[in-house]
Amino acid sequence: MRAQGSASRVRPRFGSTARGLLWVSPWLVGSAAFLFVPMAMSLYYSLTDYPLLEPPLWSGLDNYRRMADDPVFLRVVKNTALFCVLSIPLQTILAIVLAVLLNGRIPLRRTIQACIFIPTLVPLIASAMVWMWLFNGELGLVNRVLSVLGVDGPAWLVDRDWVMPSMVLMSLWGVGQAMIVFLAALQDVPRQLYEAARIDGMGALRQFSSVTLPMISPAILFNVISLTIACVQVFAIPYVMFRKPDGTNPAGHFYTMYLYENAFVYGNMGYASAMAWVQLLVVLVLTGVMLLASRRLVHYRRV
């Protein structure tokens, strides 16, 4: 019985390809219409001058060359890169630390876990509202608490030096999802490994670095990659917070905001498309580098 079953698995039946394609056809049609065609269109537009109201006009690599001399482009790249460099490691470390602390037998464990997770459910737009209120220079709770402690808080969302720290702090508020992922990964680590480590005389820190970290490294990799993809395209919160009728706070101007402005406000579809492709290439390169690096750093259990 079994041998027969596996034999029929190896040899696909006649016409099975058509059958398979039929099953996956919704995705094939949908991704063609709503993903691959738009991507191809934007690749073409990126090589044209396309003010939306007139047809696109071939301009070669002009849009890409223009970026190097565009001070606003350079600024949004710098802001977005800085945000990624600060936010991704801090979020990952905080998530791991919280997960490790929560992984013991702690009173009220589920309640604490829920408190840290719930902020990740708050729609970005609502969290922008809440943080605009908390970070308000005169009336915000953050500065009220600071003044009780005798500190004169800054105008968080206005002062150019404080915009980036505010953005990073807000991003840390959403660390709950990653924490849950790490918590689940920690619970999958076999107990015997820790027992063996203890018998070998490893201290708590050594156990963490030699047992815990390697065992949860696949989850760390997944988390860092998805955080990178998310941070590179940060949009809604800075769009609501820093885009004012009298101009955008330059410290709070991010890549996707400028892309959006070029496409839908200034009508520079060509330039916006070039920015989109640069963004895509950056994401692909970063993901590729991380996957390559992970071959040496990530430990997959052989089962």
């Binding site: 269109m41 395209q233 892309l259 496409a263």
Partner: peptide, 17 residues
């Protein structure tokens, strides 16, 4: 692979689609 494509990459042409 398509999971890696950021939405901003296609948002403008998607409108045109």
């Amino acid at each position: 692979t398509t999971m890696m494509v950021p939405f901003p990459v296609i948002m403008a042409p998607l409108y045109l689609v």
